[in-house]
């Protein structure tokens, strides 16, 4: 089954990756604070049962928005720079200011890319599941293959 969604490209780019999904707000600091000592970035946020203990590095992270500490954008930027970030961030809602900062900082200052798309709609998050194959296009089109 293939389903197509259209969003707004915040940091345009193309990538294909496996989905990991949270219906809860993604607390960047709480989730990724141990990425530096993990071989692959794993979620350590005890308050997020959707993601706790799951691998985030290299995955298509599907989420409503990010929450929590204002170190969020900085952590995302560092994750992109050291190659430990998710392959892409796919937001069902309008992106929040912390994730937006991380997306723009990475796009302007880093040689590595992490495509970011927002406004994919609630239907996107209702549909997408862990393990789905995701393809992101430059124009913000997201293909979900199951």
């Amino acid at each position: 089954m293939l389903k197509t969604f259209h969003g707004r490209p915040i940091a345009p780019g193309s990538v294909t990756a496996e989905a990991v999904v949270t219906k809860n707000g993604f607390n960047t600091l709480a989730s990724m604070q141990m990425m530096f000592i993990q071989p692959k970035t794993k979620c350590v946020d005890q308050s997020n049962p959707d993601l706790f203990n799951k691998i985030l590095g290299g995955k298509a992270l599907c989420l409503p928005q990010t929450i929590g500490s204002t170190t969020g954008g900085m952590f995302l930027f560092s994750a992109v720079e050291i190659g430990k970030a998710p392959a892409c961030l796919l937001f069902s809602k309008e992106i929040d200011s912390l994730a937006a900062a991380g997306a723009v900082l990475s796009d302007v200052w880093s040689a590595h890319k992490m495509p970011v798309v927002d406004k994919l709609g609630d239907e996107f998050l209702d549909f997408v599941q862990d393990g789905d194959r995701i393809s992101v296009k430059e124009d913000g089109t997201v293909l979900v293959l199951r």
Partner: peptide, 20 residues
């Protein structure tokens, strides 16, 4: 940020580190 906005009546977005 939330204190400055709410209690002091200043104006600030929830900026990320580096952006501030």
């Amino acid at each position: 940020v939330v204190y400055a906005n709410s209690v002091l009546g200043a104006r600030c977005n929830r900026n990320s580190g580096i952006i501030e």
